[in-house]
Design a binder for these strands. Structure first.
Lengths: 134, 134
DNA sequence: TATTTGCACTTGCAAAACGCAAGCAAATTT
DNA sequence: AAATTTGCTTGCGTTTTGCAAGTGCAAATA
């Protein structure tokens, strides 16, 4: 579970943490939903395996990207949220969306969000960060 | 070698192509050097294995991120370059650098580059894209 | 109170990906 | 002609992934 840094390069160090096929999808879910239970992640379209999900959640928590919280209504549930460090991944997420918008066909709801982003990227980021922190 | 799209989500589709520990490091090398030979990639600090490098280069070429070219001075060498689609990954790359700058200690040369980015991000991107295209 | 359901994981195992070392053919250098 | 460089490929052991099933605890239901 401990990360081995391959080099001092910031790109490399970042990928050491979340450079796999699943981590950023977990972050994505938390940016759209603000908070998710274990089961919520499993409902996503990509159908992550339960053992991989558990491993990734542990990894992301160990690296300060997400935190666990007690669910206010049930002791059986756990709430996962982004930390400020995780929330700071938003600009990366947005740029990925913009890149994909140029080279793939996006679902309509995502296209609508991107229209807002294109109008005023900085404002969109500021607002979203406030929303996620609050 | 063919990619299976896990969902219609743009983040997911992007990660299907370059969402692994190595692909963006290859793109990074090409953004810093504009063009690289197979051997150049092997020289990078992260020490990618030769079979993995070959597989990734093939994958990135199949997905239109990079192209092969004859080396002007030697038939034994091959030049790899970014396509426009690959060059468009620059904003993502920059945001990763900025995120890492906040949470890691960067090497000094990278810090200098980021100073320029922080002064005027859009200008930096425009200039870099022109440089890579030309 | 007993039982079933829901939720958050864990475990077992086969399949795929990775990583190291060695090998190989064509081009270049000596 | 021989040795070296370059861009890969191949074998093979190790690690990671993915699927299915199982476990333990909380909560709802009977």
């Amino acid at each position: 579970m401990d990360i081995k840094k391959r080099s001092d390069c910031p790109i490399s160090s970042s990928l050491d943490i979340w450079g796999d096929k699943w981590s950023l999808l977990i972050v994505r879910d938390l940016m759209f939903s603000k908070q998710c239970t274990y089961g919520d992640f499993l409902k996503s379209d990509e159908k992550i395996a339960t053992n991989i999900l558990a491993a990734r959640l542990q990894m992301l928590e160990a690296n300060g990207i997400i935190t666990k919280q007690d669910h206010p209504e049930s002791k059986a549930k756990v709430l996962y949220k982004l930390t400020p460090k995780g929330i700071d991944l938003l600009p990366i997420m947005i740029e990925i969306n913009l890149w994909a918008d140029k080279y793939f066909t996006l679902p309509t709801d995502r296209k609508e969000m991107l229209e807002e982003v294109k109008k005023d990227k900085d404002a969109f980021i500021r607002e979203k960060i406030t929303e996620l922190l609050g």
